[in-house]
Design a binder for these strands. Structure first.
Length: 725
DNA sequence: TGGTCGTTATA
DNA sequence: ATAACGACC
C-alpha cells in the first residue's frame, strides 16, 4: 500500500496495484480507496484528469452540434403531476441554466436503482457529486429484470419502492432543485442496453463520471463488474461505486470456519461476528446530507412513449455501437415514474395500494424521526418484549433499510450511542445484533451465490416434501385454522409486513408441520414483503428449511407460542376480526372451545373461520423429521462428520477491501474446504450410523489435510492464483 | 420461538 | 450429584 494521486484535487488516496485477474479485468489498473472507503480508478500511465473536451472526436462534436440544434427547437416541459407551479417554474429555470453548463463541461451521473440508495443523508453518491462539482444528472432506471422473481423487487415492495422514489424525487427537488430522470429499459435489459444508455448520456451530456451504489445480488455483481470494466476501459469513464447498504461488505470479511474462529459453529452469528470485528474497524460514521449540489444537467428529452432519440447515439469510428445507430435505442426517458412500468398495480386493481401504503411513511426525515423515536422510547423495552406481537415495541425500520431510505450505518451508530446511555438491564443484545445478522446474510449470499434457489446443504436437495397445493394455498391465504399463523399471514398480505417472531412461527409451521418445501415460503415472502431483502429472505428460509449454514434449533408450536407472543389476543383479534369475540382462553385454539362459546362469539368453524388443515401436530412433525432422516440415510458419507453433523463445501476466499478484487478469486474444487455445520440433535442420530465407519473417517482425514493447506494458500494472496492462471 | 449443552450454585 | 441458569442455535 502506498499513497498515490488525489482525485479532484481533494482527498489523499491509498492505492494498491491490482494484478491481472482471472477474469481479465483491467490489467495494470490501479484502484484507489480514500479514507472513507470510496473507491476510484485511475490509469497508471496517465493520471491527469481526462475531460471530454480534450478528447472529443470530430464525429462526437458533430453529434453535440446536432444536440444543440435540437435543444433550440424543443421546449423543455417538465410536467410531473405532483409539482406545484412554483417548483415547476424554478425547476425549468434551473434546467435552463443547467443546459448551458452541461454543454460546456462534463456531467456526473448519479445512478439510482432503489436498493440501498434512496436517501439524502449518508449518501456517498451525492457527497461525491458535490465534491466533483460538475453538472449533475440523477437517474433512476427500471427494467422488468428488476422485478425478477428470484433476485428482483417483489410485487408488494414495488408499490413501496414507487412511493419511495417519488418521495426522494420531491425531496431532491425541494432541497437541491434536482430532478430524478426516469428511464424505462426494455424487458430483458442487460449489459448491452446499459452501455447504450451510458453511451447516449456521454453523447448528450458529455458525461464521463458514473456514481452508483454497489449491489450484492449475484447477477448484479456480475453485471456491474462488466459494466464498470467496459465503461472504464473502452469508454474512458470514471466509475465510482459505493457501499450504501451494509456495515461491512462480504468480501471484506475473511471467514471460512477455520481454527482461528472457534466461537461457534461455522456460519452462525458469533463466529461470523468475530471475523467481522477482526477484519476491520467499525463501520464509518454516517455522513451528513450534502449542503448543496451542483446544478442539474438537463437532458434533451424525448417525447414520452417514443423510443429515446432514435438517431442517437451518433456513430463513432471504431465503436462497438456503430451498427446500432440505425435502430431505435431500446430505452426511453419518460416523464413520470408510472411510465417506467415499476408500479405493479394495474389500473382497476385496488389491492395493496391503500392499506399497504397507509402505514408506511416515505419521507426521509420522518423515517429518521422513527429511528430516534424507537431508540428513545422502545429500545429500553425491546429485549423483554421483542416477541410480543400484541405490543408494538419493535422498530419497524426494515422496509426503510431494505431500500436504503435509512442508512444501516446510521442505525448502527445511533443504536450504539443510545445503548450506551441505557442501564445494562435495558440494553438489547438482540437488537444490537440485528445488523450483524444482516451482514451475515449478505456474506452468506456472497459465499453461496445459489442460496436464493438451492439448498446450501446440497444433499438436502433430495429430501421428499409434501406437494399438496391446497396446504400451501391455505398457508399463503392465512386459512390454516391456527389463529396466530393466519393472523400473521393476513397481516403480511394486507400490509407487507409481519413481526419477526411471527415470521418465524409461520416459517416453522410451513416447514415442520406442513412439510412443504421452504422455497415456496421464500417465494411467497419475496412477493408479499414490503421489506424484502434477497439475502435476508434466503438466509431465513434456508435456516428455517434446515438447509442453511445455520439451522433453527427449535420448532415453534402454533398454539403454545401464540400464548406467549400474543397473551392478550390483541394481535389475533386485529387481523382475524371473525375471532374477535372469542375469550382469551380460546383465542389461539378455537377448536378447543365448547360449542356454546363458539356460537356466542359468532364463530362457526369451517364457515366463518377454517378448521385446522392439520390436526395432529405431533404426527406431522414426526413425518417431516422422518423425511430429513430418510434423505440423510440416502446421502453420501462425505456429507457427515463423525458426530453426525452435516458437512458442506465452503469456498476459501481471502478478504479484500476493494470490490473488484473479489473477482480474482473463484471457488473451484481447489480452493474449497469441507466444514461441518450445526445440525439438530434429532438429525444426528440413526441414519448416519448406517455409514461404514471407515468412510467417514476417510472424510475426516481429508478435511484435516485440506484445512491447513488451504488456509495457508488463502493467506499467501493472489500470487498463486496468478501462477495457476 | 424451544431444545441442547456447558457452567455455576447448592446440597 | 443434582438443580438451576444462561448461552447458544
Amino acid at each position: 500500500m502506498h499513497h498515490c494521486v488525489t482525485v479532484n484535487g481533494s482527498s489523499l488516496l491509498f492505492c494498491e496495484v491490482i494484478p491481472r485477474s482471472t477474469y481479465g479485468w483491467c490489467p495494470g489498473e490501479r484502484y484507489c480507496s480514500d479514507s472513507q472507503g470510496f473507491t476510484a480508478q485511475r490509469d497508471l500511465v496517465d493520471a491527469r484528469p481526462r475531460s471530454y473536451n480534450g478528447r472529443r472526436t470530430p464525429s462526437r462534436y458533430r453529434a453535440l452540434l446536432r444536440m444543440r440544434k435540437a435543444k433550440r427547437r424543443t421546449v423543455e416541459s417538465s410536467n410531473r403531476a405532483t409539482d406545484s407551479p412554483d417548483t415547476l417554474f424554478s425547476k425549468i429555470d434551473a434546467q435552463k441554466t443547467a443546459v448551458k453548463r452541461s454543454l460546456s463541461s462534463a456531467a456526473t451521473i448519479v445512478w439510482l436503482r432503489g436498493r440501498g440508495d434512496l436517501r439524502i443523508h449518508d449518501n456517498p453518491l451525492l457527497l461525491q457529486a458535490q465534491r466533483l462539482n460538475e453538472p449533475l444528472f440523477i437517474m433512476f432506471t427500471w427494467s422488468s429484470a428488476d422485478a425478477d422473481k428470484n433476485y428482483g423487487f417483489g410485487e408488494a415492495q414495488r408499490v413501496f419502492l414507487f412511493s419511495a422514489v417519488d418521495a426522494l424525487n420531491r425531496a431532491l427537488n425541494m432541497r437541491f432543485q434536482q430532478v430524478i430522470h426516469y428511464v424505462r429499459l426494455s424487458d430483458d435489459a442487460g449489459l448491452e442496453e446499459y452501455l447504450q444508455l451510458f453511451h447516449f448520456l456521454e453523447a448528450s451530456l458529455s458525461a464521463r463520471t458514473l456514481l452508483m451504489a454497489r449491489r450484492y445480488e449475484p447477477p448484479l455483481l456480475q453485471l456491474d463488474m462488466e459494466l464498470e470494466c467496459t465503461l472504464t476501459k473502452q469508454r474512458k469513464w470514471k466509475v465510482y461505486t459505493h457501499n450504501m447498504h451494509l456495515l461491512h461488505e462480504p468480501w471484506t470479511v475473511a471467514y471460512d470456519g477455520d481454527a482461528t474462529s472457534s466461537a461457534g459453529h461455522f456460519g452462525t452469528l458469533l463466529p461470523f461476528w468475530q471475523a467481522w470485528q477482526r477484519n476491520a474497524d467499525l463501520p464509518p460514521e454516517p455522513a451528513a446530507a450534502p449542503s448543496t449540489l451542483p446544478p442539474a444537467a438537463a437532458l434533451e428529452r424525448c417525447e414520452p412513449r417514443t423510443p429515446a432519440c432514435c438517431e442517437k447515439p451518433p456513430p463513432l469510428a471504431g465503436d462497438a455501437f456503430v451498427d446500432r445507430t440505425t435502430r431505435c435505442a431500446p430505452f426511453q426517458f419518460v416523464t413520470s415514474l408510472v411510465e417506467t412500468g415499476l408500479h405493479p398495480v394495474r389500473p382497476g386493481t385496488k389491492r395493496w395500494d391503500t392499506v399497504l401504503l397507509g402505514s408506511w411513511a416515505v419521507d426521509e426525515e420522518r423515517v429518521r424521526a422513527f429511528l430516534r423515536d424507537f431508540l428513545e422510547h422502545r429500545l429500553p423495552l425491546y429485549e423483554k418484549n421483542k416477541s410480543r406481537a400484541d405490543l408494538e415495541v419493535v422498530s419497524r425500520l426494515s422496509p426503510y433499510l431494505a431500500l436504503g431510505m435509512l442508512s444501516a450505518r446510521e442505525v448502527f451508530h445511533a443504536t450504539r450511542a443510545a445503548s450506551r446511555r441505557l442501564a445494562a438491564s435495558e440494553r438489547s443484545k438482540t437488537f444490537e445484533r440485528r445488523l450483524i445478522w444482516r451482514d451475515l446474510a449478505y456474506w452468506t449470499l456472497y459465499m453461496f451465490p445459489e442460496a436464493v434457489t438451492t439448498p446450501i446443504r446440497s444433499h438436502y436437495a433430495s429430501q421428499e416434501w409434501n406437494e399438496d397445493p391446497r396446504l400451501l394455498a391455505a398457508w399463503q391465504r392465512g386459512s390454516t385454522g391456527y389463529p396466530i399463523i393466519d393472523a400473521g399471514m393476513r397481516q403480511l398480505w394486507q400490509t407487507g409486513w409481519m413481526p419477526q417472531n411471527i415470521r418465524m412461527a409461520a416459517a416453522s409451521f410451513l416447514v415442520e408441520y406442513l412439510n412443504i418445501h421452504w422455497i415456496h415460503g421464500l417465494q411467497w415472502f419475496h412477493r408479499t414483503l414490503i421489506d424484502l431483502d434477497i439475502a435476508i429472505n434466503a438466509m431465513m428460509w434456508q435456516n428455517a428449511g434446515r438447509t442453511g449454514l445455520d439451522m433453527w434449533n427449535f420448532v415453534i408450536h402454533p398454539e403454545t407460542s401464540a400464548r406467549s407472543s400474543d397473551p392478550t389476543g390483541a394481535y389475533v383479534r386485529k387481523w382475524l376480526p371473525e375471532l374477535a369475540q372469542l375469550p382469551n382462553a380460546y383465542i389461539h385454539a378455537p377448536w378447543k372451545a365448547p360449542e356454546s362459546v363458539l356460537s356466542s362469539a359468532g364463530v362457526q368453524l369451517g364457515a366463518t373461520y377454517p378448521q385446522r388443515i392439520i390436526a395432529d401436530l405431533g404426527a406431522a412433525r414426526k413425518q417431516s423429521q422422518a423425511a430429513v432422516l430418510e434423505m440423510r440415510s440416502r446421502s453420501m458419507p462425505q456429507f457427515f462428520n463423525a458426530d453426525g453433523y452435516d458437512r458442506i463445501r465452503v469456498p476459501v476466499l481471502k478478504a479484500v477491501s476493494l470490490p473488484h478484487e473479489r473477482f480474482q478469486q473463484t471457488a473451484t474444487a481447489d480452493n474449497t474446504v469441507w466444514r461441518h455445520v450445526f445440525t439438530r440433535r434429532e438429525f444426528r442420530e440413526a441414519p448416519f450410523a448406517t455409514h461404514l465407519p471407515h468412510e467417514t473417517e476417510a472424510c475426516d482425514r481429508q478435511e484435516a489435510q485440506l484445512l491447513p493447506k488451504d488456509s495457508t494458500r488463502a493467506m499467501r494472496g493472489n500470487g498463486d492464483a496468478q501462477a495457476a492462471a
